[in-house]
Amino acid sequence: MGGQLGPHLHVEGTSVVHRLPAHAKLVGLLLFVLLVVALPRDAHGHRLAMLGVAFAVVAATRVPWRHVLARLVVETPFVVFALVLPFVAVGPTMRVGPVTVSRDGVEAGLALLLTATTSVLMAVAFATTTSSRDLVRGLQRLGVPDRLVQILAFMVRYLGVVGSQAQRMKVARESRAFAPRSVRSWPVVAASAGALFIRSYERGERVHLAMLSRGYTGRMPVTDPLSASASDWARALAPSVLALGTLVVAHTA
């Protein structure tokens, strides 16, 4: 873990979640998070239950917890925001110890914290169990426009190549005693970005020529399409069914 392009999340495995076809997983993920977002504002207990579901799904992936929890740092800015909310929101106030805070702010901060954590956990469960190739096949299967899937496929494929190029440029800068400390280093950073663009673009041209010489006509053939059985769908949609039930309960309560 920990390349220059941020931690690559995918972890090989054979758990139930790993074996599910990517398109079914993606639909399940999207539905589940959408249903959690749709929960009424004050349904904190229901949200907590959904957080429990998310933890259960992560546990089912059998990916080490250390790996999962390290990824929760992407949430940090919103944790800060959630903590600030009680002090900046308006509306009826309440006293917590020595300070007066907005009741709506506390509620909203709590809701944001629970929802964001639930969704990050589910997204991590998806990302750790789905290889980039399966993601591309899954999007293809779901009928995402071919051009967009191709761009995504090329991006994912060359992420490592361009990433290590950027890393080599960083080593080259630093071996010439460059240390980014102040605004005076901006021209160097910007020139690196410029050089990286030219190299990426030229690589794109070479890739295109190489593909043309191998018979590329602007379409990518689908060699082995994904398929999901009824039990695959049932497993992939199980969290969403739980979320739907919770949503109905929260609305009728």
Binding site: L5, F154, M155, R157, Y158, A166, P180, L196, Y201, H208
Partner: peptide, 21 residues
């Protein structure tokens, strides 16, 4: 479109990783 836009997307991704103090 596809190969070039893909590589430009990688560039944008990598450029977002370039931190400036």
């Amino acid at each position: 479109t596809a190969p070039l836009a893909g590589l430009v997307a990688v560039f944008v991704f990598a450029a977002q990783m370039l931190n400036f103090p």
